[in-house]
Simulated scan of single mutants.
Amino acid sequence: MKNIDPRHYDVIISPVVTEKATLASEHNKVMFKVAGKATKPQIKEAVEKLFDVKVKSVNTLVRKGKTKMFRGNLGSHSDSKRAIVTLEEGHRIDVTTGL
């Protein structure tokens, strides 16, 4: 059993499985929902340790929350931060298996 720091699980919340993320996976990119305070070096270290792969680069984006009407009540989606992780050649992550 390899020694994994539990803080890595706090950085990466979940993989993003959308049509756009699936198309990006053909170009060796994987999308994750990450903690709002996570930095690019923290995301890179967490992905490398948890999935045992080599990361080439990390791009992040923050999706702003929206206000929506739901059954006549006003509700809101919260902001979320996503990371697009580009892997080195020859490395793969299968997000369907989970952590």
Score class of each variant (00 low, 15 high):
residue 15 P to R: 02
residue 39 T to V: 01
residue 98 G to T: 02
residue 92 R to H: 14
residue 22 T to A: 06
residue 40 K to D: 04
residue 72 G to T: 01
residue 55 V to R: 00
residue 78 S to T: 13
residue 51 F to D: 01
residue 15 P to H: 11
residue 86 T to N: 00
residue 55 V to T: 01
residue 49 K to H: 15
residue 43 I to L: 13
residue 24 A to K: 01
residue 25 S to W: 12
residue 57 S to M: 11
residue 48 E to H: 04
residue 18 T to Q: 06
residue 85 V to Q: 02
residue 76 S to Q: 12
residue 8 H to V: 01
residue 72 G to E: 00
residue 83 A to H: 01
residue 25 S to G: 11
residue 9 Y to R: 15
residue 67 T to L: 10
residue 77 H to L: 15
residue 77 H to S: 13
residue 47 V to A: 06
residue 97 T to A: 09
residue 88 E to R: 03
residue 3 N to I: 10
residue 33 K to C: 05
residue 59 N to C: 00
residue 50 L to V: 06
residue 35 A to E: 00
residue 64 K to Q: 15
residue 14 S to C: 08
residue 77 H to N: 15
residue 81 K to E: 01
residue 9 Y to Q: 06
residue 4 I to Y: 12
residue 36 G to N: 13
residue 79 D to F: 12
residue 51 F to P: 01
residue 97 T to H: 13
residue 64 K to H: 15
residue 49 K to Q: 15
residue 81 K to T: 01
residue 40 K to S: 03
residue 46 A to D: 03
residue 70 F to N: 13
residue 51 F to C: 00
residue 22 T to R: 01
residue 2 K to L: 06
residue 54 K to H: 09
residue 57 S to L: 07
residue 90 G to R: 04
residue 27 H to K: 15
residue 50 L to H: 09
residue 54 K to A: 02
residue 34 V to M: 03
residue 84 I to D: 03
residue 18 T to K: 10
residue 68 K to N: 14
residue 10 D to T: 04
residue 40 K to G: 00
residue 82 R to P: 01
residue 75 G to E: 13
residue 54 K to N: 05
residue 53 V to P: 01
residue 58 V to R: 03
residue 5 D to Q: 07
residue 80 S to Q: 11
residue 50 L to T: 03
residue 37 K to M: 01
residue 96 T to L: 10
residue 20 K to P: 06
residue 22 T to P: 06
residue 19 E to N: 10
residue 32 F to L: 02
residue 86 T to S: 00
residue 96 T to W: 08
residue 78 S to H: 12
residue 33 K to E: 06
residue 76 S to G: 11
residue 56 K to F: 02
residue 12 I to L: 09
residue 42 Q to H: 14
residue 38 A to S: 11
residue 34 V to L: 04
residue 50 L to K: 13
residue 6 P to M: 04
residue 33 K to V: 03
residue 76 S to K: 09
residue 45 E to Q: 14
residue 34 V to A: 02
residue 69 M to H: 11
residue 63 R to G: 07
residue 48 E to P: 03
residue 15 P to C: 04
residue 25 S to C: 09
residue 68 K to F: 09
residue 2 K to Q: 11
residue 14 S to F: 12
residue 62 V to S: 05
residue 5 D to S: 13
residue 51 F to E: 00
residue 94 D to F: 09
residue 99 L to F: 13
residue 23 L to Q: 12
residue 98 G to M: 03
residue 89 E to D: 02
residue 28 N to P: 00
residue 42 Q to S: 06
residue 63 R to F: 11
residue 50 L to I: 12
residue 18 T to N: 09
residue 43 I to K: 11
residue 20 K to Q: 12
residue 38 A to F: 14
residue 40 K to L: 04
residue 36 G to A: 14
residue 46 A to W: 09
residue 16 V to G: 05
residue 16 V to T: 09
residue 46 A to Y: 12
residue 92 R to Y: 15
residue 53 V to D: 00
residue 67 T to A: 13
residue 31 M to V: 14
residue 90 G to T: 00
residue 25 S to N: 15
residue 51 F to M: 03
residue 11 V to H: 02
residue 45 E to C: 05
residue 48 E to W: 03
residue 61 L to C: 07
residue 10 D to Y: 08
residue 70 F to S: 14
residue 99 L to K: 15
residue 31 M to H: 14
residue 33 K to W: 07
residue 9 Y to M: 04
residue 34 V to R: 04
residue 96 T to I: 06
